[in-house]
Simulated scan of single mutants.
Amino acid sequence: METTESTTRDRTTGKHENKEADQQVLLSSKPLHRFVQRGPRNFGIVIGIFGCSELMMGFLLAGENMTTSNGIATPFWQGVLFGICGILSIYTELHPSKKMVTVCLAMYVVSLLGIVLSFVVRVCCFYEYARYMINKRDDEALIDRVGLLSGIEGLLFVSSLFVFGILTFLSCIARLALKSTNTQIIVQHIPAPAPPPPTDTAST
């Protein structure tokens, strides 16, 4: 009796171990986990750093009387968007789910639209700075200040362009992950159990 009980216990534990192994394999093959394998946490840290730089430069530009991108508070709301995208990317890698990937994708798209708007604002600022350079060449103090503002706006423009590329990459991966997840749910239907074979009444 003891041997039979031990064998049955071993069989049951073996089944549980097999189920856990199968579940781990299924989780590793899910599209959401493929999205996590792309390292959104690392990208999120980078985006968050650029968001902090936007905020710091925004405080620097807030006291300027000349035309800057701070006219519509571009560094502040863009820095906040970058920070939210970075936090969501980090959280999604730690706790992956379809809902979180959908939220990340929505924030990525909003941030991309915000970057496009900031591009337009900063191009207008560059145009104004070029006019100052041409019309007021004799005022050295003004030229130096315009050069400083041009450098700051140019740095923010380049950083926004870099973040634009990262967000575009993450948006494509998130969209493909969500699309693949829907397809996988349709494919993985469990078939109904086959009916038992008919008993042979003639032999009885």
Rank of each mutant, 00 (worst) to 15 (best):
I87D: 06
L55T: 10
Y129G: 06
M133Y: 10
V36Y: 01
K99L: 08
L112H: 07
M107P: 00
S97V: 03
M56L: 14
F119L: 08
C125L: 06
I47D: 00
H33A: 02
C125V: 15
S118C: 12
K30L: 15
I134D: 09
L60I: 14
Q78H: 07
S150Y: 08
R41I: 01
S150M: 15
M57H: 07
S111N: 10
K99P: 00
M66D: 08
R41K: 09
G151W: 05
H33E: 09
K30Q: 13
Y127K: 12
A73E: 14
S150I: 04
I84A: 09
F126R: 06
G114P: 01
R145Q: 15
V25F: 06
T92Q: 04
V25M: 08
L27W: 06
E64M: 15
R131E: 06
A130M: 12
G151N: 12
P96R: 06
V80Y: 13
S29V: 05
Y132C: 09
S89R: 03
T92D: 04
M133N: 08
L156A: 02
L27I: 10
R137E: 13
F76P: 00
G51Y: 01
S97G: 07
D139V: 02
Q37K: 11
I143E: 11
V25L: 13
G48T: 02
G79R: 02
G86I: 01
G39P: 02
P31A: 07
Y132R: 06
L117T: 15
L27H: 09
G154T: 11
V120S: 10
L105C: 09
K30E: 12
L112M: 13
G86R: 02
I115C: 08
C104R: 10
V120N: 07
K98E: 13
I152F: 12
S97C: 04
G44R: 03
T92P: 01
Y108E: 08
E153C: 07
S159H: 03
V110I: 13
R38M: 09
N70I: 03
V123G: 03
E128S: 15
L61E: 13
L94M: 07
G147D: 13
L26H: 05
